[in-house]
């Protein structure tokens, strides 16, 4: 469990980063927190010829409010986000999801950009970004482009990032008044990747659900919204029966394909039902202005 030999580059500026990326092309991998990449290298599941260490690029390490958006630099450590009062205020769903993300030593090094670029289908943050309809800001020599979270995750460990591009920033819409949210997860042990997780937001006005967003993780090769369940909620009064109906739809109309020892399809359906119900219940309870 030792990595194969690699070259090491440590750019000191974003322009420098783009230069070394251009020089090495697809032979290079970006090293951020290293919490997924380094184990993969030790198992020799990843054998990059070049590692580009971006840990010196402090300009990618920030959390700030830009109008209606919460902007988080890709190199921001998980624990910084987890502990951020600004995130707790502007994106309670993300703050809550972080309770399920790994262990503190991993969160001390791991970064949000590394996590999202890695695109593990059992990870929490991709589902959060999809549920909140966030955007990924990708940079390259050609400039900057914004990709909606829903179009960013293409499969297990597969994203819309093109050669020459890197994920620079995550933009999340700030929670609107009256929007409630909840994140529910079952994992084998605390801090493990999810067996199944469900994120939900509900905007309720006068007892009627205006907008519902539900996303799952660890069910398929990528996180996704459960739109058929959202549809039965929107425009309806949110009573227990309606929530149960949405949960039932989430369970029956989702085809679990990410099957492993910890969760077969039947069990993942059970979890989709239970977790969707619980997430919606709590989201409706905390949707006060």
């Amino acid at each position: 469990m030792k990595p194969s030999a690699f070259h090491y580059e440590k750019p000191s500026s974003l322009d420098g980063l783009l230069d070394v990326m251009g020089k090495h092309g697809e032979a290079a991998r970006i090293l951020a927190g290293g919490q997924s990449l380094v184990p993969m290298m030790n198992f020799r599941l990843a054998t990059p010829e070049v590692l580009i260490d971006i840990n010196g690029l402090s300009e990618l390490d920030y959390i700030r409010q830009d109008g209606d958006s919460l902007s988080i630099g890709a190199l921001t450590r998980h624990n910084v986000i987890y502990d951020s009062p600004l995130v707790a205020e502007l994106s309670p769903l993300m703050a809550e999801a972080y309770k399920h993300v790994a262990h503190t030593t991993i969160r001390n090094r791991g970064t949000i950009g590394g996590n999202l670029s890695h695109a593990d289908p059992s990870s929490e943050l991709p589902a959060v970004c999809i549920c909140l309809e966030g955007h990924m800001i990708l940079r390259s020599k050609q400039g900057t482009r914004e990709v909606p979270a829903g179009e960013f995750f293409l499969g297990a460990l597969e994203t819309a990032i093109q050669p020459g591009e890197f994920l620079a920033e995550i933009k999340i819409p700030v929670r609107k008044p009256g929007v409630g949210s909840a994140f529910e997860e079952v994992s084998p042990r605390r801090g493990d990747f999810a067996t199944t997780a469900v994120a939900a937001t509900l905007q309720i006005d006068g007892g009627i659900c205006q907008t519902a967003r539900i996303a799952h993780a660890a069910v398929a090769d990528r996180p996704a919204r459960i739109e058929s369940a959202e549809a039965v909620l929107e425009g309806s009064a949110l009573d227990k029966a309606r929530i149960n109906q949405a949960a039932e739809i989430a369970a029956s109309e989702t085809e679990p394909s990410l099957i492993n020892y910890h969760g077969d399809a039947d069990y993942k359906r059970d979890l989709l039902r239970a977790l969707t119900k619980r997430a919606l219940q709590r989201a409706s309870e905390n949707s006060v202005n």
Partner: peptide
């Protein structure tokens, strides 16, 4: 052996 790592071979931690 499908769970030949501590990511999948689950030893309970203090939390469990």
């Amino acid at each position: 052996l499908l769970n030949a790592s501590f990511a999948d071979y689950l030893i309970p931690t203090l939390h469990e």
